[in-house]
Design a protein around this nucleic acid. Sequence first.
DNA 1: CCTTTAAATCGGATTTGTTCTGATTTGTCA
DNA 2: TGACAAATCAGAACAAATCCGATTTAAAGG
Lengths: 141, 141
Amino acid sequence: MKVEEALQILKEHGYKYTGKREEMIRICAEEKRYLSAKDIMERIKELYPTLSFDTVYRNISTFVQLGILEETELDGEGKFRLACSADGHHHHHVICTECGKTSSLPGCPMNVMASVPEDFQVTGHKFEVYGMCKECVSHAN
Amino acid sequence: MKVEEALQILKEHGYKYTGKREEMIRICAEEKRYLSAKDIMERIKELYPTLSFDTVYRNISTFVQLGILEETELDGEGKFRLACSADGHHHHHVICTECGKTSSLPGCPMNVMASVPEDFQVTGHKFEVYGMCKECVSHAN
DNA sequence: CCTTTAAATCGGATTTGTTCTGATTTGTCA
DNA sequence: TGACAAATCAGAACAAATCCGATTTAAAGG
């Protein structure tokens, strides 16, 4: 997803444009990596030094609801990245547990794996592979 | 996994036997369901009304380390259930997001899905299907 | 432009889940 | 039984996230 698309989605849903929102999205768009709310806060302070963490959290959760950000949970805190499923088709990620960097996996287990018991009404699924990226492996020495 | 097996594992690793530990494991063994630390606390208070939450958390994390409990994260809090992978072979679950009840899925996407990029050193993976179980669907009306 | 209004933000207090700490109790083994 | 290490207690401390009332601001209409 591009920054412009994200802003378009906000507009379509009647949310107002603010520089802070754009900057948050821009920060997430810079990297194929999961960022924590704190990460985003730190980076946005360069441009908006007084921004309150309430704003960051509130906007993040708006973005997640609108499908602009994807969310996961690592080390007991929420991590976020610009949604990419929207771009092409639905897929999943390998995630570096050190730095949050991601790499796409083709396909989805839901298509491949046959039987989901019919006494459950399925609402979603999660498939994530965890590991360490090249860079973090070498840093760890 | 059975309660006795779990106690055996504790013993093998040099952990002491305590009634509180046994009761915690027993509580988890009662249901094929993910329980929160709070759930476990409430239930264990019947037998040990003064038990501190520190003990519960500490024991839970010991159990997870030893592979006695499986952990996941739902609604921003840790949930736990008696490990069953140990029994047969490795597999995954459908989880009811309302009550935590689980049902097994045969197989593992890691076997089925071919390519994990070789610039990641894989350390683990997670595959969970979410939904509502029959009971919770009907209660929701 | 100016006004109006609802949405967004601020700053800090609050809540919630979890971990830490130091003192005390309790298994276990010699 | 005694001694020691491990387990537990009680509550303080912590960190992530949410809530709240007051203030500011985007944007739509006159």
